[in-house]
Amino acid sequence: MLIPHPLLGLRDAQEFTYLGDANLMNRPDPNAPNAEAMFCDYVFLRDNPAGVHRELWYHEQGDRSWLVVTRNTVTHEILGAELASDVALAHREGSK
């Protein structure tokens, strides 16, 4: 597969390490009253849809960036890729 790196263009998936569901970026609030239950979900439960999925890929043999890649897990079509740090910062802005 080829991953459309937002800074470096199309890069072969061989350069990347796959992590999975991008929801791993949404680490629960450790001070929430139900923090333990939320962390259990966060650590152990992942969506694994047949279809469009937002996933984390790490450009280990490249610029060491974490990307959020939107990919159809059935066709392997890639619909987009963003720097995870941009996604995380935008999410912070949005939740303010």
Binding site: T17, M25, R27, L56, Y58, W66, A84, R92
Partner: peptide, 14 residues
């Protein structure tokens, strides 16, 4: 190192 980059970029980019 990978985990540190994950934390830096994905968890606490601020």
């Amino acid at each position: 190192y990978r985990n540190m980059e994950f934390a830096r970029q994905c968890l606490w980019p601020e």
